[in-house]
Design a protein around this nucleic acid. Sequence first.
DNA 1: CAGGATCCACTATTGGATCCCG
DNA 2: CGGGATCCAATAGTGGATCCTG
Lengths: 231, 231
Amino acid sequence: METQTVAATSAGFASQHELLRAARHLAGRTIAELVHGLDCELPAEPVRNKGYVGRIVERALGLSASPLSAADFETLGVELKTLPVSVASRPRESTFVCYVALSSLVETPWEASRVAYKLARVLFVPIESEPHLTLAERRVGSAFLWSPTREQSALLQADYAEIAGRAASGELETLDARVGRVLQLRPKAAHGAVRVRASDGEGLPSMAQPRAFYLRAGFTAEVLRAALRED
Amino acid sequence: METQTVAATSAGFASQHELLRAARHLAGRTIAELVHGLDCELPAEPVRNKGYVGRIVERALGLSASPLSAADFETLGVELKTLPVSVASRPRESTFVCYVALSSLVETPWEASRVAYKLARVLFVPIESEPHLTLAERRVGSAFLWSPTREQSALLQADYAEIAGRAASGELETLDARVGRVLQLRPKAAHGAVRVRASDGEGLPSMAQPRAFYLRAGFTAEVLRAALRED
DNA sequence: CAGGATCCACTATTGGATCCCG
DNA sequence: CGGGATCCAATAGTGGATCCTG
């Protein structure tokens, strides 16, 4: 049975290439088909189930809840990201990268940052996600491995520096999601009132909105176009 | 009197450089000040007086209604365009270039087109035009002469070809203002029901909406940035 | 709470319509 | 009707908020 083939590949991958092949094996399948071999429920509607597709693809590729398979991806040095795309292969959303504390931003250069580490190597799995499609109907596209080109890396680093600079000088008023040409900082929490421990400009304890790095849709659009040209 | 200085330069210019100097002489003045030396009325509000600033600047530079001074600009080979800009020097609007008949588009290559001719050399006069400013309060910026760079020319030509191609193949449904990265085609008339004589795909007579070429605001923004870097 | 993400009200952009003059 | 342009309702874009899971 087709879906069992997917399950069979789910144990550890020896290389990034092997992982890519497994991901490409999913191309053309609907989410319903992925779920079929995975013993899990399929919610009817996308809304209120935001991370669902991402988790299904993780599982279809063997990244289960177990620490062991999570370690596979860790060992391979690959970050897995589903990318919701329109029929015209245009990303419909920005891409979450990771949380970050403003204080760590100030201390950490781009090269040593978690965002740079996560973006060093990404397996993008496009998902055709027109709003009118149910989760079940959404279809997996052709996955690809990406690392930033020299130009892209320069853009990311410049945005990081701009964001870190504003954090350092305490210009929190002007440090919103509009900053950054390709990388941006946005609130990320269950709701807007959530606060976490932080330190203010002078290192004194304070409470702050949790924030995370995101890639702008325009940037992943460029990444996707380049990948399509490769094919 | 200062405004007489302006009037004194209004007779024919010997060169583009002389014209540019006269235009730069207007920098920093308000429209009220320009009008002061010109014997004409100043409407209170911008709305319902759309071409007013353009005509005032023309007159301040000696392009009166008389065919003679119009010929000055013609002889110099310069097109005069005011450019409404925000305080951040961002163009607030697209820029009208000229009317065009779809039939002529099909026959005329870029090099021989009126739009290419008009864009070959332009004197842009930025006007600070925040919506809350009355006409009188709007201020003239630093004028500059522009000709398309090689890259800009390639973009313009490619857009022209794209537009002409759709006109040729009769794809009028897809030939709207969205076509063209920097150059676009838009309806231009007193109102949407205006029609002019035209010919259809087979050369048969028909009625069509008058259309004109415009430069997108994003393009003139780039032109303006380059000019500001020069200064 | 970190990580898988998308939602959606609001803002920014702009395509088509329009205004005045000669 | 061509040329000087801007207006503004509708659409596109996105910043901040939010949802579910382990």
